[in-house]
């Protein structure tokens, strides 16, 4: 190596587990935001979340004209912004690590001076930001404006709505972290997607058999399977109702931390 040639460059100074992180983040960021991927995702989620909520809003207005109750809008947001997004996350994220392992790009990147922890963190961070922005935050803000302008609900308290949106963000991150973790544990995209799907239905239908499941259910952050008995945490924050239990929130946060920790631990032990 020619010393003069190398002296022209500033060396990467990251140390420890962060080695390679900046460049990995830059690469993932470019893949999402410097291509049409981001816009396509945003359009899909605007169509699903805001399009469906628009239809619900029209149905509410039409029902009101006839003196009937329309669909409960915030409950419906729990379905479109919660359940639909969760399944979208499973589809988007199932390929993130598995595809890279199968294609050999993970092995190629790991032959460079990067740590495996940085690799996992970069995939988690950029995919989370991209998904949360396109599927939760932008549609959420548009929904707030739509409800304020066109619905009987009027201008909801902004802080309460923001807190409700945080619940949707947490719920979405739960599925992102879970699918990422599954990508380190399993080798096929189908099984990486299947396990979270099964878990979703366990949380949806399980509490009717084992009522205690409701207290560790992430889906209760956005959607209540029994709305006459309890409201989802997001709805409670938006409407100012008392929260029936903080345990689902706590359990979701703890689960997210565990999923990320397991993903990093497992990826550090994988061989390529």
């Amino acid at each position: 190596m020619s010393a003069n040639a190398v002296d022209r460059f500033q060396r990467v100074t990251e140390t420890g587990w962060r080695r390679g992180l900046d460049n990995l983040l830059r690469g993932e960021y470019s893949a999402w935001f410097k291509s049409s991927r981001w816009w396509k995702q945003l359009l899909v989620w605007l169509a699903i979340v805001n399009g469906m909520m628009g239809i619900m809003l029209i149905a509410t207005v039409e029902a009101a004209k006839e003196g009937n109750d329309g669909p409960p809008l915030l409950f419906m947001y729990g379905i479109f912004g919660g359940m639909f997004v969760a399944f979208g996350v499973m589809i988007i994220m199932q390929r993130v690590l598995v595809r890279e392992k199968q294609a050999g790009t993970a092995a190629w990147v790991l032959s460079k001076p990067v740590t495996r922890t940085a690799f996992v963190v970069s995939r988690l961070a950029v995919n989370s930001v991209a998904i949360l922005l396109s599927a939760v935050i932008v549609p959420g803000v548009i929904l707030y404006l739509t409800l304020g302008l066109f619905s009987d609900l009027g201008w909801l308290p902004p802080l309460g709505f923001a807190a409700g949106l945080v619940m949707v963000v947490l719920h979405t991150f739960y599925w992102i972290a879970l699918v990422l973790m599954m990508g380190t544990l399993l080798e096929s995209s189908a099984s990486v997607m299947a396990v979270p799907m099964v878990l979703y239905f366990v949380f949806w239908y399980g509490p009717s058999l084992i009522p205690a499941l409701i207290y560790i259910s992430p889906i209760l952050l956005t959607f209540s399977p029994a709305p006459d008995q309890m409201s989802a945490l997001s709805v409670a924050f938006i409407t100012g109702e008392p929260v029936f239990s903080w345990l689902p929130l706590l359990a979701t946060v703890v689960a997210c931390v565990v999923f990320v920790a397991v993903a990093i631990w497992r990826f550090n032990r994988q061989e390529f």
Binding site: R8, F9, Q10, R11, V12, G20, D22, N23, R26, P113
Partner: peptide, 19 residues
């Protein structure tokens, strides 16, 4: 070109012109 620049940035933080 992008791939080579991406690879180079695992080793060098800059300057961009040299990379």
């Amino acid at each position: 070109r992008q791939m080579l620049a991406y690879t180079a940035r695992f080793f060098y933080a800059g300057p961009a012109a040299e990379i």
